[in-house]
Design a protein around this nucleic acid. Structure first.
Lengths: 201, 201
DNA sequence: TGTACATCAGTGAACGCGCGTTCACTGATGTAC
DNA sequence: TGTACATCAGTGAACGCGCGTTCACTGATGTAC
């Protein structure tokens, strides 16, 4: 009750951070503002001092999570090919780890919000699409330029291959999360098989 | 107001069918029983004549959708390799079509429920896991047994490759749906790139 | 076959509850003089 | 520097609303005799 502007800005960030975790874990619709504000350390009424609506918070959460995820990606500028290949292998191992699967709160937001984004507002969807574009670019930059062995089919561009690889990574993560509780063995098998398959490609 | 047992069973199926569409389109949490029953052609009160709870309906919807999807898959028994290869190519073309992307209501339930299932009950998750297992089996049966060119890496089993392929298919479908409204061009590119990439593998 | 009655699918109002949002109020911050 | 006051982040009760669920009631179905 009576708080400096600096502290208020910190508190606003705490709300965004709490929402980024809770929304990914239980879905945007599954988290109410009372619980959200409590998790951030406040009572419900203060929410509207910081955000116009819940939807406005959702937009900011998507933007923030996508921006953070982009910052975590390797820069990929002018690295020697072998180093960027190693970076890709490291990314793969992390992305398809049980640790990443079980930490949806802080994991890749493209995967974490993939189930919700189609039902969110237009702004959130645009921000999400921008984040997806960044992921494709980062994977393409990390991939060695070697084209796959094409028998008689049209050759794939680097970007097409990058998109294919990322779809497999994301699909494996999403599916391993979907069955993690009901069938831990299948969940593990999905991660492991996709990992092996991606390393071979 | 007085209805034969036969008609009552039909009505029950109408509720399940309406729910199968609405739950996929807008999420389980996004559809209320009033709207659901109205869509099926009834008023809200009758719901509990057929189902113990909303959760019980969810379980039945998942079971029913997975069972229907399995019935649509090619049997894959004793077909010559070339025929099963063609079946796989047909499945791929359908799975990654804009038609399938835009028809989530009747599309693959493994993809349609992938975002919701982790937040549903244990029974729904088990039923979902069973459906996923069926998909892996069907893909494996349709794939030619030819192993990929492994330089010095351990060779992949047919099942491992099938899991990898299906993860890529599902990831592409989920992502193309996620950005379909905000970025139609990117959505199309995801489908097309994954399709090309999968044909080459 | 005809009559009397139990069954139960369907109706629509009502329940408590949690949702997103609004509001009057508090009191430290931070500006004006 | 000290005093007076406007600002505004935070509080917690309250709002209307839609949710899942319950209920008394209706009336054709379908069984018992």
């Amino acid at each position: 009750m009576g708080v400096s502007k600096e502290k208020a800005a910190e508190n606003r960030q705490a709300i965004v951070a709490a929402a980024a975790c809770l929304f990914r874990e239980r879905g945007v619709d599954g988290v109410g503002l009372v619980e959200l504000m409590k998790e951030a350390g406040f009572t419900q009424g203060g929410f509207y001092n910081h955000f116009k609506s819940k939807q406005a918070l959702v937009d900011e959460v998507i933007a923030s999570a996508m921006s953070d995820a982009k910052a975590d990606l390797p820069q990929g500028l002018d690295e020697p090919a072998s180093a960027s290949g190693t970076a890709l292998m490291r990314q793969l191992a992390y992305y398809l780890s049980t640790q990443h699967r079980d930490d949806i709160e802080h994991g890749c937001p493209v995967a974490g919000f993939s189930g919700d984004v189609a039902r969110l507002g237009a702004d959130a969807q645009s921000l999400y699409a921008g984040g997806l574009e960044d992921m494709f670019g980062a994977i393409a930059a990390m991939m060695s330029a070697a084209p796959p062995p094409s028998d008689d089919l049209p050759p794939l561009t680097g970007r097409e291959r990058a998109i294919g690889r990322y779809c497999e990574m994301l699909g494996a993560l999403v599916l391993s999360r979907a069955v993690a509780q009901a069938s831990p063995a299948l969940s593990q098998e999905v991660l492991k098989s996709a990992h092996k398959d991606l390393l071979a490609s």
